[in-house]
C-alpha cells in the first residue's frame, strides 16, 4: 500500500475523542444565556418556565433541545477531526439526556411535594423558584454530563486495552 493510501486509511479510522472543553463551552453559553434572561426578564422568563412546567411541555421541550444540542456538539467535533462516528458515544448521547431530564423532573416533583407539606410562608413563589432552579440544573446536566460519561468510558476503554 502506498504512503498516501495508508495516511488516508488512518484518517478514516480515527475515532472521535471528545474533550470536555467542547461541551463545557456549550454548557457555559447556555448558562450565560439563562443568567442574562433571568437578569433582563426577571418576571416574564421564570413565569414562562413555570407555566410550561405545570402544563407538561417543559420536560418534552428540554429533552428535544438537549438531544439536538448534544448531537450538534458531537457531530461538530467529528467533523472537525474528520473522524468516524462510534457506536458508544451516540448511544450515550441518545439515552442519557432523556434519562437526566426525566429523572430530574421526578426529583423536582418530590421537592415540590416536600415544599407543600412544609407549611412555609410564600409557598407559591418558593415553588416557582424551585422549578426555575431545577430547570437550569436539568438543562446544564443534560448537556454536560453525557460527555463526562463518554469521556470516562473512553478512558476506561483505553486503560483496559493497554493492559
Amino acid at each position: 500500500m502506498s504512503a498516501p493510501t495508508l495516511a488516508l486509511a488512518e484518517v478514516q479510522q480515527r475515532k472521535v475523542i471528545v474533550r470536555l472543553a467542547d461541551p463545557a463551552v456549550a454548557a457555559a453559553y447556555i448558562s450565560v444565556a439563562f443568567g442574562l434572561l433571568l437578569v433582563f426578564f426577571p418576571v416574564w422568563f421564570p413565569r414562562m418556565i413555570v407555566r410550561n412546567w405545570w402544563n407538561g411541555r417543559l420536560t418534552i421541550a428540554m429533552v428535544v433541545f438537549t438531544l439536538l444540542f448534544d448531537s450538534a456538539i458531537y457531530i461538530r467535533v467529528a467533523h472537525l477531526l474528520s473522524a468516524k462516528l462510534e457506536i458508544l458515544a451516540p448511544a450515550c448521547l441518545g439515552s442519557l439526556p432523556i434519562m437526566i431530564v426525566v429523572g430530574l423532573s421526578s426529583l423536582l416533583q418530590s421537592a415540590i411535594s416536600l415544599t407543600l407539606s412544609g407549611y412555609l410562608p410564600n409557598i407559591e413563589a418558593r415553588i416557582s423558584e424551585e422549578i426555575v432552579t431545577h430547570t437550569y440544573f436539568a438543562l446544564v446536566s443534560a448537556v454536560f454530563l453525557p460527555f463526562v460519561v463518554i469521556r470516562l468510558l473512553e478512558q476506561f476503554k483505553t486503560t483496559k486495552s493497554k493492559r
Binding site: 470536555l20 472543553a21 467542547d22 463545557a24 463551552v25 454548557a27 457555559a28 453559553y29 448558562s31 450565560v32 439563562f34 443568567g35 433571568l38 437578569v39 426577571p42 421564570p46 423558584e129 426555575v132 432552579t133 437550569y136 446544564v140 454536560f144
Partner: peptide, 19 residues
C-alpha cells in the same frame, strides 16, 4: 473552557439564590 463553565454556573446559581 472548564473554568468558564464553573464560573458561569456559579454566577447563575448566585443569581438564583439571590432571587
Amino acid at each position: 473552557s472548564l473554568a468558564f463553565l464553573v464560573f458561569s454556573m456559579a454566577a447563575v446559581i448566585e443569581i438564583l439564590l439571590d432571587r
